[in-house]
Design a binder for these strands. Structure first.
Lengths: 247, 247
DNA sequence: CGCTAGCTTGACATTCTTCAACCGGAGTGG
DNA sequence: CCACTCCGGTTGAAGAATGTCAAGCTAGCG
């Protein structure tokens, strides 16, 4: 299953690519030093499980590089992704030492981990951390609610279009520009993982991708590399109102 | 549309029924006094809209009595509920002055409202409030994720059974006992609102309710009053593993 | 007395899943 | 080097679950 071992650099907080978006975003120099003292890096290869639901977790973490997925599995194997964690997103719940969900790396991933206990202390003593965490949690809750609309009410085609636009948009956010016109990007998920995200089967995902391709909404350079000739046309397929609503 | 005007009492924090579960749960006497100074009550009748998505909201609030729903609507009218707010749940997002979702009263509702600006100040100066809010937000996020599994992967029958067990469980929590054996409760939602919660049509909701009734899993005293002769049997219909998983 | 809101039921249409076959590229072992 | 296999992906045919449209029921109310 593992291919090459992608070696991510381990850097000082000052050099960190997610310095201004993660839990630490609002920290001053002295607070960063405190975090620096309790942090360590871990890497995972695409496909690896980071933790299983129910496992003890002695750390919380920020995603530095790559993409991780939170998912739930029913006894009979039905699986639903409930979180998609991109760089700067937070893993783990303070004051809970067991994972609530399976966490898997869908690409090669590097985490910046904080030892649980000292991190929890910091949450109490350092408002810049706890306030940032509250804000991030509220953002995730909004994202979860958007996702609920998708799962409950959108058609398969709308689900796919919405997913693609989310990925395109998030990619663009990292580069601080909003997508329009021609866009291209790499899918960080297999068809099966997309199906788990969207509450579909992988066959339906495949069929709808083909259908969008046939209709010229997207083009595939590679199974994973997507080209969107006209982003507005893709947005139109999502079922959302003209200008992104909440965002 | 409105029937009788249900008059809820307006009480001191010390007498408040949600005193130990709401955002104020961890406040000391002096902090309660601060809250008391910025709070006021509002009541709504079943069916009334509390705010529309996009409206200015100059307050945040706790649900004191009754049940409110958060929902999103697509242009063509498709509607998905994304939050079900029971007594002690929190409405509104600090540092955001416009509502992100429609909020409607599904029963008669009383809110304890806090003026936005002073509440935001308190969040900064009063850790017992901000920490409680973080905890509540994390709980809501967990609930949203459970809900995503329901929307994405459960069958109509499982959705209904899950919904009923959630209502039964939440009702029981208010009375601090866990349901088992024989349980009875009132549905706080119309069939249509249930459909919006579950990502179904109201016809499917109705059919599945009939089916569960036919199979003896539930009995209906009234369209709204549910009797569950054997709670474990209901749980078995939810598709979740034996002992409630996360909870 | 008739209306309306909330709900139930039936018949039929549609969407999506299921099961199965197949494709192509990447690694693997002879 | 070649055959083999595995993985991720695509496509087809058939079936099941749910949605749609329509009719009808009941309780409460004007």
């Amino acid at each position: 299953m593992p291919h090459r071992q992608h070696a991510f650099p381990q850097v000082d907080c000052a050099q960190c690519p997610i310095r201004h978006r993660a839990v630490c975003a609002r920290c001053e120099t002295d607070e960063l030093e405190q975090l620096e003292a309790i942090k360590y890096y871990r890497s995972y290869e695409a496909g690896q499980t980071i933790v299983w639901a129910g496992d003890k977790m002695d750390f919380v973490a920020s995603v530095v590089h790559g993409v991780a997925a939170l998912s739930q599995t029913m006894e009979d194997g039905r699986r639903q992704m409930v979180g998609l964690l991109l760089p700067s997103d937070f893993i783990g719940r303070p004051n809970r030492d067991r994972a609530s969900y399976d966490v898997t790396a869908t690409t090669d991933v590097q985490l910046c981990c904080f030892r649980r206990m000292p991190f929890q202390e910091m949450l109490i003593t350092t408002p810049s951390v706890s306030q940032r965490l509250l804000e991030m949690t509220l953002d995730e809750l909004d994202a979860a609610r958007e996702w609920m609309l998708l799962l409950g009410r959108k058609t398969a085609r709308e689900k796919i279009a919405s997913f693609l636009s989310i990925i395109a948009r998030r990619n663009a956010t990292l580069q601080a520009k909003r997508p329009s016109g021609h866009v291209a990007f790499e899918l960080p998920l297999t068809r099966e993982a997309m199906a788990d995200y969207l509450g579909l089967t992988l066959e339906t995902v495949s069929r709808q991708m083909s259908s969008l391709k046939k209709d010229g909404v997207i083009a595939l350079e590679d199974k994973r590399r997507i080209i969107v000739p006209d982003f507005d046309a893709l947005m139109h397929e999502t079922g959302d109102d003209a200008d992104g609503g909440v965002y």
